[in-house]
Computed example of a mutant assay.
Amino acid sequence: MARRGAFIVVEGLDRSGKTTQAEIMRRRIQAGGREVVCIKFPDRSTPIGKMIDSYLHSQSDLDDHVVHLLFSANRWEFASTILSYLKQGKLVLCDRYAFSGIAFSVAKSSETPISTASHSESSLEKLSPITLPWARAPDSALPSPDLTMFLDISPEVALTRGGYGEERYEKADMQRRVRNVFEEIGRQVGATVEEAGNGRWVVVDAGRDMSAVTEEMWGHVQPLLDGVDSPVGRLWE
């Protein structure tokens, strides 16, 4: 089969420098004469994306299960587009993907059980917390990245960076729980990395000088610049 483009995902905690590093990667790849497409999730331009944006800015309240499914639906909106770009030989560079959606949903649900609205205490029913298997299910069969770079940073360091705390999930305790879930996801991906369709998961210390982070990431990206021979894998399959 003809070589296809590589699918690379940049993940990480809030204020870890994901978007900045993804843009640096994009410019560097283009400077080398290769075609690259950048996608950022959630994509807030779609109708679903606008609902997510309202929620993230605390302008609306939604059940956590609904929020998780909205984030997944937002990714599915672009699944065929990603596959099309890869088939054309273009490298797809993604700022956040399914792993973020899973990590934030599980981390949030692990702290506070969600209750259905009720005017009677006797009829109050608690919904089941969002578990890792439940959170993974809606994203099953999405295109699987060939490489995921997780930018790791402590909440204490993130707190010193500009803009921290502007959105709903940017709280130190929440970020610690998200970090723990990301670690478990990384272990799961790493355990299946030799199986067909499972790309590498690498952890990058994002608390260092920005240029050091950039160079480490570039070292992981370079081997994929000329494309991939294998078919596109599918998440969790």
Rank of each mutant, 00 (worst) to 15 (best):
R3M: 11
R4I: 11
G5F: 07
F7I: 11
I8G: 02
I8T: 04
E11H: 04
E11R: 07
T19K: 06
E23F: 00
E23S: 01
E23Y: 00
M25G: 00
R27A: 07
I29A: 05
Q30N: 05
A31E: 14
E35R: 15
V36D: 06
D43C: 02
S45M: 08
G49W: 04
G49R: 02
K50Q: 15
K50C: 01
M51Q: 13
I52Q: 00
D53M: 02
D61P: 00
D61R: 12
D63S: 10
D64T: 03
V66G: 06
V67N: 05
S72V: 01
S72E: 03
T81R: 12
L83M: 11
K87I: 00
Q88H: 06
G89F: 00
Y97W: 05
F99M: 10
F99P: 01
V106K: 07
E111W: 01
T112F: 03
T116K: 12
H119K: 07
E121A: 14
L124K: 15
L127R: 11
S128G: 07
S128M: 09
P129Q: 00
L132W: 05
P133M: 00
A141F: 14
P143H: 02
L147F: 10
F150A: 05
L151H: 06
P155G: 03
T160Q: 15
G163I: 05
G163S: 04
E167G: 01
R168Y: 13
E170S: 04
E170C: 05
K171T: 13
V178M: 09
V181C: 09
F182A: 01
E183R: 12
V189E: 11
V189S: 05
V193D: 02
V204L: 13
D209N: 12
M210G: 00
S211I: 04
W218F: 04
P223N: 07
G233Q: 10
